[in-house]
């Protein structure tokens, strides 16, 4: 699968499913993924998926996947507002101090991948070459 977008992710399941599209940041935290996304936005990329899930809080899941446009243009204020909002939310929630077991980590990976899949499924034609 090729496209004019790429994925910034620390989720190994995403890297496995979309090896050619994913910038896999193996040991990154969620805040690093958000920071990476914010840097790209400042360089003119557009954020394609919302950086937060609708239910799972960013201090709960250790995984995050962002879909970014490859094409770069003017700074997109809408994307910037959302990523900054996500960073604020992350700061607001206290760390939970929970060491998850392997099965729970896999469950978080599955949910992150599923939300990413639903984003990629709904991308318009211009994003699929």
């Amino acid at each position: 699968m090729m496209g004019n977008f790429h994925i910034v992710s620390n989720n190994p399941m995403v890297a496995e499913k979309y090896p050619d599209l994913t910038e896999f940041e193996k040991d990154s935290k969620v805040k690093d993924i958000f920071a990476e996304g914010r840097n790209s936005i400042h360089l003119g990329a557009n954020l394609i998926n919302h950086p937060l899930a609708g239910s799972i809080k960013p201090n709960q899941s250790p995984y995050k996947s962002l879909v970014m446009s490859n094409e770069k243009g003017e700074l997109d204020m809408f994307s910037l507002k959302l990523i900054e909002g996500a960073l604020q939310v992350l700061k607001k929630f206290p760390p939970r101090g929970i060491e998850y077991d392997e099965q729970t980590l896999e469950d978080f990976q599955v949910i992150d991948l599923d939300l990413l899949d639903s984003a990629i499924d709904s991308l318009p034609y211009e994003y699929h070459e």
């Binding site: 954020l47 394609i48 998926n49 919302h50 609708g54 879909v67 809408f78 994307s79 959302l82 939300l115 990413l116 639903s118 984003a119 709904s122 991308l123 318009p124």
Partner: peptide, 9 residues
């Protein structure tokens, strides 16, 4: 709905 992509939103 409340979807994932900004385009959907």
């Amino acid at each position: 709905n409340e979807n994932v992509t900004l385009q959907d939103k």
